[in-house]
């Protein structure tokens, strides 16, 4: 088995995890849609040529082909950029994979602003909302290499359909080697009593930690949660944080409509209403630029998050 820290990019972590699984489990196959060099599934193809199919630039067909393959007992992992892995193949995922109760794992790469130079056409903010609509789907967005490796393995063992939202390039390691992760169980990184920041994905967990430090200097103690699983929602942890702080800010590299923030707001509205705010994209499409430009352009920065927290608890 590989170690997550052997890899230099998220794409190698996720494909490495699938390859490790494939060495142990003959049912695993990998389907790509002419983006194998982008996610490095080329390494899977070299090692398991009979279990890799490049379906070409035809994502909808790829999704339904994967659904058919799962009907014989194979377990497909399929990949496209997040925009195509959600919008372009949605009806096929919804019906042939979800409704037909198949077992397929979908890797949607470069979520939100991490699409960077591919720009607005390739910048999925809505994939979270789309995948949240499909009954019994697991949706994960790990925030570092260790959790991405561990949770990619876990979705296989869950025997449920899943959507894995991950950047391709670069990798951060915020967690120790060998740390245990569990689908549906968020990680409490800080446990301050003044405000709770619930963040999903690498960009937002980074912002949350930066905001934590800024707030701490001003005498404000924040709870910080890495919500690596978007669905199912870790309602126990969210409720605990809401009760402790009375103020919740949800951060996601996605659009407000149907996103993580709405999911948490709906849960808390029923169970423990608190003051809330949301760092996310509003009525706006993506655009081209590097990550630091896009973080500023969309307000996805630690300093902005700290200001939002201060405003909320004022």
């Amino acid at each position: 088995m590989s170690k997550a820290r052997d890899f230099k990019n998220y794409r190698e972590v996720v494909v490495g995890a699938v390859s490790d699984l494939a060495r142990e489990h003959e049912d695993i196959v990998f389907l790509d849609s002419d983006l194998s060099s982008c996610i490095t599934s080329t390494s899977f193809a070299s090692e398991f040529p009979e279990r890799f199919i490049n379906c070409g630039i035809a994502e909808a067909n790829m999704a339904a082909v994967a659904a058919g393959m799962s009907a014989t007992g194979l377990t497909p992992f399929i990949h496209s950029f997040g925009c195509f892995a959600s919008r372009r193949m949605y009806d096929q995922v919804f019906l042939s994979i979800g409704y037909a109760k198949r077992c397929v794992h979908i890797i949607g790469s470069d979520p939100g602003i991490t699409a960077q130079y591919n720009g607005g056409t390739h910048m999925p903010f809505e994939d979270i909302a789309l995948y949240r609509q499909i009954p019994d789907f697991i949706v994960i967005e790990p925030s570092d290499g260790e959790s991405l490796y561990a949770l990619t393995r876990q979705v296989y063992f869950s025997k449920k359909n899943s959507y894995i939202r991950t950047p391709r390039k670069g990798v951060a390691f915020r967690y120790d080697e060998g740390m245990k992760f569990e689908i549906g169980k968020g990680i409490e990184l800080k446990d301050g009593a003044d405000v709770a920041i619930i963040a999903t994905g690498a960009v937002m967990v980074d912002n949350a930690m930066e905001a934590y430090e800024i707030l701490r200097k001003d005498g404000i103690n924040a709870t910080v949660i890495d919500l690596h699983t978007i669905k199912p929602l870790d309602t126990d942890l969210i409720l605990k944080a809401a009760k402790r702080t009375g103020h919740v800010v949800v951060c996601e590299n996605g659009r407000y409509a149907g996103g993580v923030g709405e999911a948490i707001a709906a849960f808390l509205a029923r169970n423990y209403p608190v003051k809330m705010d949301f760092m996310c994209v509003g009525e706006r499409f993506g655009e081209v630029g590097n990550l630091s430009y896009l973080k500023e352009a969309f307000g996805f920065t630690g300093s902005h998050l700290a200001s939002m927290c201060k405003e909320l608890i004022r």
Binding site: N61, A64, V65, A67, M69, A71, G73, L74, S96, A100
Partner: peptide, 25 residues
């Protein structure tokens, strides 16, 4: 019934997937 269908176009893709899987197996 070997595969769910109703949204037209998807069944032939699924049939292809089954055929590819049977070849792998």
């Amino acid at each position: 019934i070997d595969f769910t269908a109703g949204s037209l176009g998807q069944g032939i893709s699924a049939a292809l997937g089954i055929a590819l899987a049977l070849r792998i197996e």
